[in-house]
Design a protein around this nucleic acid. Structure first.
Lengths: 146, 146
DNA sequence: AGCAATAGTTGTATTCATTCAACTATTGTT
DNA sequence: AACAATAGTTGAATGAATACAACTATTGCT
């Protein structure tokens, strides 16, 4: 769905164009991830974040925008499936560190390898020059965004 | 979340970068839309499509990737709220055309005006030249995508 | 005329996600 | 030592999304 809201800046218009391009591909992709993993999407999102480093439940909650109870339930679920484990936090005894198990890491790898998030065909057809422009621009945005 | 899957083409890598940029902004935006309209998101999605032209239930179902029963329920809901109405299809008596009511159109307008989907700050900071590049590239993708 | 396919409806069941209240254990502050 | 704040847990309630079976009405095909 491509939507142009009247009255915005050129940046807003482009942003909306970009969102539209991305948006429509996400449902299908989400479905495929669910199919490949047998996991609801909220769980996959957590596995992702854990790929880089272990996190406390609090961090997971903040990061995923859910509250503490929901996070406990999600981590319980993942732990029950053997994808994740709780460990004592080295610095605080009330916090717990959640990290990927070997199996959990395999699942994440499987997502990356089997559910390839390939660019749409039109994307592939861009010229080398356009790709270079695009990379430069996207990286600039990405860098200043974080 | 920025994710680079190993082994893909440059286009795939850029696509994933773009998806990552867009993705993280969507939850918040969805929440705001829900807040502004009081509608679940599946309903808003239907209102959107109807903005351009009336559609049959079948078209809505195909377009949103849901099945016939779900679509009937959704349209019932929207009709109950007075945002949408069923009309006989001019060419087939078994099909029905769903179109926005005046109130429905107001809701859609409200989404556009109050829940501005503004570009992230980093986006706004791009140079005129980069914006021009970006527009050219995105429009090329958009055109060949549909 | 008879039959298959299509458009839509009704009802039901399941799974997910989100939120709230009430609770324990630990830590930091005064 | 007393108290407030923080991290996590448990359980219940609610709202959404998705899927399926069974049905009616209409249309197209032969």
């Amino acid at each position: 769905m491509i939507r142009h809201t009247s009255g915005g800046s050129e940046a807003d218009a482009l942003w909306q164009l970009m969102v539209g391009l991305v948006w429509e591909t996400r449902r299908e992709w989400r479905r495929k991830v669910g199919e490949a993993t047998g996991l609801p999407f909220s769980r996959v999102r957590i596995l992702w974040r854990l790929e880089e480093a272990p996190m406390t439940l609090k961090q997971i909650a903040d990061d995923t925008g859910s509250d503490a109870p929901a996070t406990t339930v999600a981590v319980n679920d993942l732990e029950g499936r053997g994808l994740v484990e709780r460990q004592p936090h080295p610095e605080s005894r009330r916090a717990k560190l959640v990290s990927l198990t070997r199996t959990g890491r395999q699942i994440v790898d499987r997502i990356h390898s089997t559910v390839r998030d390939d660019a749409p065909a039109a994307f592939q057809a861009l010229s080398k020059t356009d790709l270079a422009h695009l990379r430069r621009i996207l990286e600039r945005i990405d860098r200043s965004e974080r």
